[in-house]
Computed example of a mutant assay.
Amino acid sequence: MKKYIAILFVAGAAGALALAGCDKPAPRDGGQAWVAEGKTMGTFYRVTLASPPAGVLAGLQDSISRQLEQDNHELSTYQQDTVLSRFNHYPGTDPQPVSANMADIVTTALRIGAKTGGAMDVTVGPLVNLWGFGPDKQPRTMPDQRQIDQARARVGLRHLRLIEDDKGQWLQKDLPDLYVDLSTLGEGAATDHLAALLERRGITRYLVSVGGAVVSRGLSPQGVPWRVAIQRPTDKEIDAQAVVDLQGHGISTSGSYRNYYELQGKRVSHIIDPVTGRPIEHKLVSATVIATTALEADGWDTGLMVLGSEKAQALAEQQGLAVYLISKTATGFATWMSPQFKSYIISQEDASADTAHRQ
């Protein structure tokens, strides 16, 4: 379940930079900023450094590319030779070795999956593929209930187990044809991995994004905290709904209004409910989460999107999550934020004339 790019970067106090792709790092801007950006995991990445010491830049672009290639080699379901693809295609149920990075992602997935009552389910791959949002092509007709039931029979976190011992980490399935899809967590994981790469080089002022996941540390090139704008649910590339100060945390947004297709006169969202086996149809269109890591935020936002507004609000309050929701109404959009999210807000625009800023 790929996320759309719903994050804008606010440079200093004003001005927004939409994500764009290129394969070479941008030149330093008056000695103040260094930017590398490009494509990865079917989306875009961007690394911005504020006033980096000249010595840390040597070979940095190559290191960034290698890290992203490593993540893609482990997590991609579009390539047949990746670690995850080999696990999915393995016809048995014996434990299979995985890296520590993948083990961390699966651990997060299982924990958040349990807390969302299975709404965030990384085994939802058969349903994602059935509806045409995985490696398989878009269906020509709506899947029928028999097809949905057959796919659902191969879905469930209870069929997936992570084993850790003194020899390493192992992933095990009790259904030979279980299909694990970690794309919903891949962007957050890759963002954290790039941040860790920068930290190892002694870089302490940066903003990193992969798709809809972002993490930051320190101050921007303007000497103020990094600020990120949450995209309003429109087709406009730069249209901020709210601006937040990340305070060194990770943020991730998941939404239903950009990644979809029309089939037989009906709009089909890429976000699949594992319980019903069908794309979501409720009014929640965007869920943003701020957490200590981008991976954590990336896992929660998908689960909340599946649950819908009311259940997402209740779970956010129960778990003490920093959450910002945008829901469609009869006259526009309505917003809701948890008490934990309020401390990050710099500004927010009215969502709709009738129900703006429901809190």
Score class of each variant (00 low, 15 high):
Ala190Gly: 12
Gln169Pro: 00
Gly113Arg: 01
Gly125Cys: 10
Val180Pro: 02
His193Ala: 14
Val122Arg: 01
Gly168Trp: 12
Val155Gly: 00
Gly202Val: 09
Ala109Asn: 02
Arg152Leu: 09
Arg200Phe: 01
Gly92Val: 11
Gly202Trp: 05
Asp144Thr: 06
Gly134Asn: 06
Gly186Ile: 05
Ser183Trp: 04
Asn88Gly: 10
Met120Cys: 10
Leu198Met: 08
Pro95Val: 08
Leu157His: 03
Asp94Val: 12
Thr204Asp: 15
Gln172Arg: 14
Asp104Ile: 03
Val106Trp: 00
Pro95Leu: 01
Gln147Ile: 03
Arg86Gly: 12
Ala109Tyr: 00
Thr204Glu: 15
Thr107Arg: 15
Ala103Val: 05
Val124His: 04
Ala100Asp: 14
Asp174Gly: 07
Gln147Asp: 08
Asn101Arg: 14
Lys167Asn: 15
Thr204Arg: 15
Gly118Leu: 04
Ala151Ile: 01
Val208His: 05
Thr184Val: 13
Asp192Glu: 07
Arg158Val: 03
Leu207Ile: 14
Gly188His: 09
Ile148His: 12
Gln138Lys: 15
Met142Cys: 08
Ala196Ile: 12
Ser183Phe: 10
Asp121Arg: 07
Asp192Ile: 02
Pro176Asp: 10
Met142Arg: 14
Leu130Gln: 09
Gly168Met: 11
Asp177Gly: 06
Asp192Met: 05
Gly118Phe: 02
Arg111Lys: 14
Leu84Pro: 08
Thr141Gly: 08
Ile203Val: 15
Thr107Leu: 11
Ala114Gln: 14
His159Leu: 04
Val208Gln: 03
Pro135Cys: 07
Trp170Ser: 08
Tyr206Ser: 01
Ala100Gly: 09
Leu194Gly: 04
Met120Ser: 11
Gln147Phe: 00
Asp136Ile: 06
Gly113Phe: 00
Ser209Met: 13
Gly156Arg: 09
